[in-house]
């Protein structure tokens, strides 16, 4: 494995981390807001807020890590993506800002405030959609070089079926991941009513997820034949992903082993996400930018990797402590303890 692949793999892992825990987070915010408006908050709010509260800031750091890391390892991305993404990423920042701050406002300052809950619930759902546009753009065909400057063709972007398949996938997957996780979490908290409702949501959102994912592969055949071909060579990964998906749905359907079901779901997304990533190789942006021609100098690469290893030594025990205190702490999950400042 060369250092370029090592760099992109590290970043891809963190992006995956963001997508997974971000999805749980954003979906939970949405279900919470939805329950306030349908009068089901009595069932859902407790279990959702119990999970959400201590982790939201950590979620955001995964994203920061990814975009700071990509500029560090692949500085040329700043030029190509920085210039073209001004509008889409600015929208994402605005959604993220409202999501993060109004979440904190509601949780710490104004518990149960409907307006705040709605603000962060809705922006949280739109955020994955707006961030997913970046993946769409990376497929190429939407950026042209005019006078040496990359320019984004908005008309082409927003009339492409590929764009909308990815948007649908991002929203459906967010709700699917989140509801499957919360089903398990609610079950762990012995909250039967919440478990049942969340289980229903998980089953509802499973199928749009898989259909949109299939649709994307289909769209790619027309949009980016090069990538489509590459995807085919990774077919076992996508097949495993599909089998794991069926396993999750089966277990949730049968109301059995929600923990295992969620593990299978994580497996499903690991295989799909890394299969997609591997097939994207070596391009960061079709057809202009590969991980090789955008890579930083050797000295910086080595420095970043050393910093990364030292950072991990600090982070892994800390993350473990966080999970042990909240996610795997029975008393906390059940809501028998409240130690908020």
């Amino acid at each position: 494995m060369n250092i370029e692949i090592l760099g992109i793999t590290v970043l891809w892992v963190f992006l995956f981390g963001y997508i997974l825990i971000g999805a749980i987070d954003f979906g939970a915010g949405f279900f919470n807001a939805y329950s306030l408006f349908t009068g089901k908050q009595r069932i859902l709010t407790n279990v959702i807020q119990r999970y959400l509260s201590p982790v939201w800031e950590v979620t955001n750091v995964f994203l920061v890590f990814f975009f700071v890391g990509i500029i560090g390892f692949f500085p040329k991305t700043a030029f190509y993506y920085g210039t073209t993404l001004l509008v889409p990423v600015s929208f994402a920042i605005i959604l993220l800002a409202v999501r993060g701050s109004y979440y904190a406002f509601e949780t710490y300052g104004a518990r149960g405030h409907k307006g705040y809950s709605f603000a962060y619930g809705s922006t949280g759902l739109l955020l994955p959609a707006s961030l997913s546009i970046v993946l769409t753009i990376s497929e190429g065909g939407f950026i042209e070089i005019v006078n040496g400057q990359p320019v984004l063709d908005y008309w082409k972007l927003f009339t492409s079926p590929l764009t909308w398949s990815i948007v649908v996938l991002s929203i459906a997957a967010t709700l699917y991941i989140s509801s499957a996780f919360l089903t398990w979490y609610a079950n762990k908290a012995r909250d039967r009513e919440a478990t049942q409702l969340l289980r229903k949501y998980a089953l509802i959102w499973a199928f749009p997820t898989i259909i949109a994912a299939g649709g994307i592969i289909f769209e790619l055949r027309k949009h980016n034949p090069l990538h489509y071909e590459s995807i085919q060579t990774f077919w076992p990964m996508f097949l495993i992903s599909l089998i794991l998906f069926l396993g999750t749905v089966f277990l949730i359907w049968k109301k059995r082993h929600y923990g295992v079901a969620f593990s299978l779901l994580m497996g499903q997304f690991v295989f799909a996400f890394f299969g997609y990533g591997a097939s994207h190789y070596p391009y960061l942006l079709y057809p202009y930018l590969t991980i090789y021609d955008s890579f930083t100098n050797q000295a910086m690469a080595v420095a970043l990797i050393i910093a990364f290893i030292c950072g991990l030594l600090l982070l892994i025990p800390s993350l473990y402590l966080l999970l042990r205190m909240f996610l795997f702490n029975k008393e906390y999950v059940k809501g028998n303890e409240n130690h908020h400042a």
């Binding site: 700071v68 500029i71 560090g72 500085p75 909240f326």
Partner: peptide, 27 residues
């Protein structure tokens, strides 16, 4: 990115560390 990315990258770790323990401390 080519020259001064190292402290930017280290900043995310400092921030990570802070975020994790702030969550624990508060609760």
């Amino acid at each position: 990115g080519n020259v001064i990315a190292l402290p930017l990258f280290m900043e995310t770790f400092a921030f990570f560390f802070e975020a994790i323990f702030l969550g624990i401390y508060l609760y």
